[in-house]
């Protein structure tokens, strides 16, 4: 496309796509500052009363439709999942990349095969496994609770945040180990050996020498998992029923049903902005790491 005509057409296409991507967000943000009555009366106008309708819509979404709870739940579930996931996956990935015994080679294949398993296949077994395990845990822990003077305490993994966190961590392991092992493999072993000669134990060599070197890989893994878990809907839908435990995607879907039912679209536009805005902010700061991660993946094939 060296001709100027082709060049011009190229820019037209790129700018058209840019507008197609950006304009819907502008539309949602502007409309979220208009009352439902206004939206129906004049669908495509500018907000008549910026601060008034904006405040009303967002207050209703944040407080009355419980977005404050959903938001907090998402922060809690995702941050604890990420912390636990990295605490478990980093040492495992390091060991898998570092030691080449036959057992460890098979172990890596075993872990990575999990990337082929669709979450749907796990749904039925996990759902009913959670029921059985909850009953077993209740029985097993009852002496402990009785000792604290609490009879009839029921432990439940289903419909609880710890249960969801366990699911998120386990189901993210394969992908995370895939990223982290390929990162640890690229690190030079000389530094590790120098550490050992200087008298580090294996753990110290991992913790103070190798892990800091793998930081870019750990950051990439953390970001991809953050995005995946922050947006996760299917498992949360299956395992969380109680409204006060719902995460943001689950809450937004529920509010969309209410809003459609009551024709309260001002509320829905505001809810949508509440869900999209944090992602946008995170993206602006971290997009460099994201595109790097994809580049890395593409070159590995």
């Amino acid at each position: 496309m060296d001709t100027s005509g082709g060049r011009f057409l190229l820019y037209v296409c790129l700018i058209a796509w840019l507008l197609a991507v950006v304009l819907p967000f502008g539309w949602v943000i502007v409309t979220s500052a208009r009352s439902t009555e206004e939206i129906f009366r004049a669908p495509f106008g500018w907000p008549e009363d910026w601060s008034g309708s904006l405040g009303a819509n967002y207050r209703k979404a944040w407080v009355k439709s419980h977005f404050e709870d959903y938001f907090l739940n998402s922060v809690l579930v995702v941050s604890s999942s990420l912390a636990l996931l990295l605490a478990i996956a980093c040492p495992a990935a390091y060991a898998l990349a570092r030691y080449h015994s036959r057992t460890f080679r098979w172990l890596l294949v075993y872990f990575l095969s999990g990337m082929m398993v669709p979450v749907q296949l796990l749904l039925v077994p996990l759902f009913f496994q959670y029921k059985d395990w909850s009953e077993a845990l209740t029985v097993a822990l009852s002496p402990l609770f009785a000792w604290f003077g609490q009879n009839h305490v029921e432990v439940s993994l289903a419909d609880s945040h710890p249960g969801l966190v366990l699911l998120y961590v386990s189901l993210s392991l394969s992908f995370t180990l895939f990223i982290l092992t390929s990162f640890f493999r690229t690190l030079p072993t000389e530094l590790y050996e120098a550490g050992i000669i200087d008298g580090c134990g294996e753990f110290r060599a991992f913790w103070t020498v190798m892990l800091p070197l793998a930081k870019p890989g750990v950051v990439t893994a953390a970001i991809f998992n953050f995005i995946g878990l922050w947006n996760e809907y299917f498992l949360a839908l299956v395992f969380i029923n109680t409204d006060k435990y719902k995460t943001l995607p689950l809450g937004l879907a529920a509010v969309s049903i209410q809003a459609n039912y009551r024709s309260d679209f001002g509320l829905l536009f505001a809810g949508l902005v509440i869900v999209m805005l944090p992602t946008l902010v995170v993206y602006i700061f971290l997009q460099r790491y994201l595109t790097q991660g994809i580049t890395l993946g593409a070159l590995k094939g």
């Binding site: 996956a89 040492p91 495992a92 060991a95 172990l107 386990s170 392991l173």
Partner: peptide, 13 residues
């Protein structure tokens, strides 16, 4: 180092 990941992966996946 691999045991926790192994247990979780085995029982949950």
């Amino acid at each position: 180092a691999v045991t926790p990941a192994f247990l979780l992966f085995t029982f949950w996946v």
